[in-house]
Amino acid sequence: MARALINVPAKAARGEIIEIKTLIQHPMETGFRVGYNGAMIPRDIISNFVCAYNGVEIFRAELSSAIASNPFLTFTTVAAESGEITFKWTGDNGFEAIETAGITVA
């Protein structure tokens, strides 16, 4: 299981713009490199990232071979209600990682 680091403010005021930061451990092997034995190293990347706030999708990203290893994504949203923010990364070789973070909106 890949490690992921999520930074979501635990508390926010209603209507406040909050910044969400995500960092996930992944080699992001491009598929264009040649290994020591002369054979191509097969592509192994995260291709999709989705963030949902209480089940509603608020941010999506499609990643490509050009993205560095351990992708760091940061984006903002409006703190509308208390609940759960879920993060899902999917990619080559059946890669899937899911993380959640709680937020209290007052």
Partner: peptide, 17 residues
């Protein structure tokens, strides 16, 4: 900024391991 923020510093993966 990447280094200073423990949730943005990829070195923290190794620290956690």
């Amino acid at each position: 900024a990447m280094q200073d923020d423990d949730s943005a510093n990829p070195g923290m993966f190794w620290v956690l391991d």
